[in-house]
Write a protein that binds this DNA or RNA. Sequence first.
DNA 1: AAAGCGGTTCCATAATACGGAACAATGTAA
DNA 2: TTACATTGTTCCGTATTATGGAACCGCTTT
Lengths: 250, 250
Amino acid sequence: MIQSVDRALHILDLLKNNPRGLGVTEISKSLDVAKSTAHRLLMSLERYGYVQKFGKDAIYRLGLKFIEMNQVVVENLNVVEIARPYLEKLSADTGEIVHLVMLDGYEIVYIDKVDNNSTIRIYSQIGRRAQLHCTGVGKAILAHFDKSNITRFIENNDFRSYTPNTIVDGQALLSELEKIRIDGISFDNEEHEPGIQCVAAPIKDHRNHVQYAISVTGPLTRMTKEKLETCIPKLRETAQNISRQLGHFL
Amino acid sequence: MIQSVDRALHILDLLKNNPRGLGVTEISKSLDVAKSTAHRLLMSLERYGYVQKFGKDAIYRLGLKFIEMNQVVVENLNVVEIARPYLEKLSADTGEIVHLVMLDGYEIVYIDKVDNNSTIRIYSQIGRRAQLHCTGVGKAILAHFDKSNITRFIENNDFRSYTPNTIVDGQALLSELEKIRIDGISFDNEEHEPGIQCVAAPIKDHRNHVQYAISVTGPLTRMTKEKLETCIPKLRETAQNISRQLGHFL
DNA sequence: AAAGCGGTTCCATAATACGGAACAATGTAA
DNA sequence: TTACATTGTTCCGTATTATGGAACCGCTTT
């Protein structure tokens, strides 16, 4: 909207695509502006460290300021806050309870919960902990561990059974996780509480790591096949949107 | 130099110092410009993802573009290339040979060497490997391992002796490393080759990790006490400058 | 209901960024 | 060696373009 700012930021994109650097002339041609203009823009960018001049042939590259800025951005990425509006929408669209959980050690912690008919934060289950093997969200996160960590986790744990459906066999869990990783979606078919079913999806961060997951939870009676059919795409999309907001670009 | 670009980049600095976000009015006051101007600048920044608007109260924060840009910058950080001019200067100032080494596994590899009287790259020693305990650069890097990694390294290795001065005793090495970490400088007093002495300093990257080190090397006859007195500050400064160029801000 | 306080939009003005030309520095070809 | 080509940098008059102010809109408070 502001010509000169637009052009300056355009230069940064240009340099992003040419990380080895570009000269003033090349840049001016790409932007279709006079050399002097490109030069002036580069001076401004250089002053702030967004661009760095190399060698006596004056090749310009992206500067170190980006590293500095990145740290601030990443430090202030707050999942709960970012996820909130998406979770509210998901809950409203599905009419079910939506959870956000986070990995802590080898357990998950519920860090947010949205009920379908209120935007007030309900602290009822927030802070509750659960194991990885018996919840949709837990399995969604576990499925994205390193292969070696998964086997280690399975070998070193006895899995407590909560319902007849809880997966307690290591081999069964392993193949379930494999499926989950491919699908990008995991289920909880009364594995933790009888009568309660849920669908979950992982949240990926800027390093492509999975530390969070979200789920849509409902009583078995309401979670019909048709209902799930409509929930899953919405869940997928929501998880993707949140991931993107956390800097996940892949 | 370009007013509008300057102002735009100034806003980014402002938001960097207020990571929780600022409103248009606040920003316009800080920059001492009209609200409309600040608003227009923000629109341009937002278009490119450098700024993100949150909530209906229109709080602006740093955007995710920085994460994207950071990746490109970090990926293209090339130590050898960046260090070159600094190494040349250091060699010219000291009149001695300067080395750049890199950690690879539990060994170091010489990845650059600058002779005092030529700017031509000499491949004679580049690629040579050495152990960590017997060189100045090796100890400089080793000293910055995690405490647990250091003890593990010392416990699991028998240290080969190259000269009478080589440190082969675990305890002796441990206390030497402690000293090095405090000083920020390490020495090689004929520990690897008789008659050769050197001073080394670690290079730190954008994550405060030490993967590289540089050294000034010379024959014992030339490396007098007085000579070292002048070399060390230059070495320190060079190491700092290179670290900064690699995104080390601390 | 009205006032206050944010963000956003619009517009006339003149300040400001622009392009072009001249210059400097470097490398290349004759 | 000279002349030429190419690239980065500086300067300046012009008119394009960013600017500030006023008006507007939506929200909250009293």
